[in-house]
Amino acid sequence: MKDNEKVISVKNLTKKFGSFTAVDHISFDVGKGEIFGFLGANGAGKTTAMRMLCGLSLPSSGEGRVAGYDIIRQPEEIKRHIGYMSQKFSLYENLRVNENIRLFSIIYGMSDSSMKEASEKLYKDLRMEDMSKTLVKDLPVGWKQKLAFAVATIHRPEIVFLDEPTGGVDPLTRRRFWELIYKASSEGMTIFVTTHYLDEAEYCNRVSIMVDGRISALDSPEALKERFQVSSMDDVFRIVAKDALRVD
């Protein structure tokens, strides 16, 4: 990958909490427009790694650049160019749908006209035209997740980070959610997504598998299946993660 194609570039990124090393010297690059899957068991360090990339957590050592900015020195610059959807639903439940959209659009510095345009597109894409005045807490889980994704990408960021975006929803809703991800990707956004669902890994251009804070495998799903001589990502994961020490 050429340097000018990389939107995320990380070298020896490490995060320690006391004597516990949550993320242990990971290095990888993500290219522009890629859908990059970040796999791993619970506690493997996925979320911690992602939080460092988003400027929410300061690395203990190592270096990295996201969207052209240094993750240690320019976290606030990075935040202008990324979107982030956390594992826990984090829109304001007691605000209406349109109030949430308005709040985040203004924070990202969007003008009134581009905000209007973006929210109309959002309602149309999500088929939520008649829900703009609904309190977010009254939406069903699947809708909430779609809305959270739409709000995280309202300002057309270069990269969007999704932390287990499809946790706890049915297969059909998951399927629809991935359609949204593909749509964003086709519009030029880079997608960085963590997941437990190995069928979702098949949808990614490349995946990395984290085991005990390290990256144990990184390639396209096809190449990984070929390397381990198996037919599904599920089997790849079983082989790579079988020696994991940090299991629940």
Binding site: C54, E77, R80, S90, L91, F104
Partner: peptide, 13 residues
């Protein structure tokens, strides 16, 4: 506790 602060912290506010 509800996690909304995280959504704020990841913005440039």
């Amino acid at each position: 506790e509800t996690g909304t602060i995280e959504a704020m912290n990841v913005t440039p506010v």
